[in-house]
Computed example of a mutant assay.
Amino acid sequence: MQFRSPTSGLLSVDQMIRHIAAYLEEDPKAAHKIVIGTDSQTTHQATTFVTAVVIHRVGKGARFFFRKQRMKPMYDLRHRIYRETELSLSLVELLNAQGMNSLLSAWPLEIHIDIGQQGETKALITEIKGWVTSVGYVARIKPESFGASAVADRFTS
């Protein structure tokens, strides 16, 4: 599995974890939070999913990494939102398995979901947030879900 960093290029999961750890060590007294969010875009050819990992140094900027996946077109919005959430949660599990669990437990971890009170996705808020919180993570929705609705969204096309 490969991730892309705007500053460091293509990275393996292990390299990304090392970059994250180094960024956290640059200013260990600063407040940080780790954000994972996924967004998608569907065309007639495929649905592109982008999962972003954001290390936010609160009030002092952030670093981010992202991964793109293309799948057959998914036209059903509900199915796509569930898949986005599944990709974010799967990434957390992968990062834990790769040794990032100490970093994930030391700093607040948020799962950002590209749903909100406006539009078609508002009917999904209760069930998607319930799913994320039931597995032990903080769920953020629009307008607080910048990891999905801004960072990941930027790379879906």
Rank of each mutant, 00 (worst) to 15 (best):
Q2H: 14
P6N: 14
T7Q: 15
T7N: 13
S8D: 15
S8F: 13
G9Y: 02
L11F: 08
L11E: 09
I17A: 06
R18L: 14
A21F: 09
Y23F: 15
L24W: 03
E25W: 09
E25T: 15
K29N: 15
K29C: 14
A30S: 14
A30M: 07
A30P: 01
A31P: 05
A31L: 12
I34A: 04
I36H: 00
I36L: 04
G37P: 01
G37L: 08
G37S: 08
G37T: 09
T38F: 00
S40P: 06
Q41K: 13
Q41A: 11
T42K: 03
T43A: 12
V50Y: 01
T51F: 00
V53R: 06
V54R: 03
H56M: 12
H56I: 13
R57L: 04
R57Y: 03
V58T: 10
G59R: 03
G59D: 06
A62G: 03
R63G: 06
K68A: 09
K68V: 12
K68L: 07
K68G: 01
Q69K: 14
R70M: 10
K72M: 08
D76F: 03
R78E: 12
H79C: 06
H79Q: 12
I81G: 00
I81Y: 00
Y82S: 04
R83K: 12
E84D: 04
E86L: 10
L87V: 08
V92E: 01
E93P: 03
L94Y: 00
A97I: 06
Q98E: 11
G99R: 05
G99P: 02
N101K: 10
P108F: 04
P108M: 08
I111K: 04
I111T: 10
H112F: 08
I113F: 04
I113V: 14
D114I: 10
D114M: 06
Q118R: 13
L124N: 01
E127L: 05
E127R: 07
K129D: 03
G130A: 05
G136R: 09
Y137N: 07
Y137W: 09
V138T: 15
V138K: 13
A139Q: 01
A139C: 08
A139N: 02
A139D: 02
R140H: 10
E144R: 12
G147K: 02
A148I: 09
D153R: 06
